[in-house]
Structures are given as C-alpha cells and as structure tokens.
C-alpha cells in the first residue's frame, strides 16, 4: 500500500515543477503546459486524500473530475487565444503581449 505522504510529496514536486515553468517560461504554450502540470498535481492530492480519508464516498475523485473539465475548457480557450495572437504577430512571447497594457 502506498503511504499518503508519498502521494502528497510527489504532488508537491510536480507542483513546483509546474510553478517553475509558469514563472520562467516566455512561450505562452509552454506556460499553458506548466499550468496543466500544476492542475495534475492538485488532482493527485485530491485523489490521494479521497483514497485515505473517505474510501467509500470518494468526493475527492469527483472534484478531480471537475478540475479536469475546467482544465479542458481552459486549454480550449487559451489555445484559441494563443492561436489568434500567433496569427497576428508570429510570436507568443508573453512579455511582448501588452496591447491591453496601460
């Protein structure tokens, strides 16, 4: 049986990988991927807790399902935005996307 701290620890490591990606990448697509990693680590936490704290009524798994749903929606919209930007300026460096700034 896998001890709960192992699951949580794995999730924490995955989360910080994602966090590092979100903080340092300039390519919007890659930032999107890093966000997906973070969401996955959150799901891992939810599933892990669900397994250990309420095995007969896995509410945590349901939350994970909703996270997935929202993630899918998010990726669809975010990619659409990125594509529009890429078509207009051939560049998805988020430091340079500042049309709405100021």
């Amino acid at each position: 049986m896998v001890p709960l701290p192992y699951v949580l620890g794995l999730a924490a490591l995955l989360f910080s990988l994602g966090l590092y990606g979100v903080l340092t990448q300039r390519n919007a697509v890659r930032i999107l991927m890093a966000i997906e990693l973070m969401l996955n680590s959150v799901n891992l936490n939810l599933v892990g807790f669900a397994r250990y704290l309420e095995p007969d009524r896995p509410g945590g798994q349901l939350f994970a399902i909703f996270v997935m749903t929202v993630a899918a929606a998010e990726v669809a919209v975010a990619l659409a935005i990125i594509l529009v930007i890429a078509h207009r300026r051939d560049d998805v460096d988020i430091d340079k996307i500042n049309l709405l700034k100021w």
């Binding site: 990448q25 390519n27 697509v29 991927m33 669809a76 594509l83 890429a86 078509h87 998805v92 460096d93």
Partner: peptide, 20 residues
C-alpha cells in the same frame, strides 16, 4: 488536451523562443 496542444503548435507554426 495533449493532442490539442500538439495540434495547436503544428497549426500555428510556432517555433520555440530562444529563452526556452
């Protein structure tokens, strides 16, 4: 999601930025 991202990269012909 992965397929979508791959597809998005291909369709928009994005090359990676130098910093990455």
């Amino acid at each position: 999601i992965t397929t979508l991202i791959v597809f998005g990269i291909m369709v928009s012909n994005l090359q990676d930025l130098k910093a990455g």
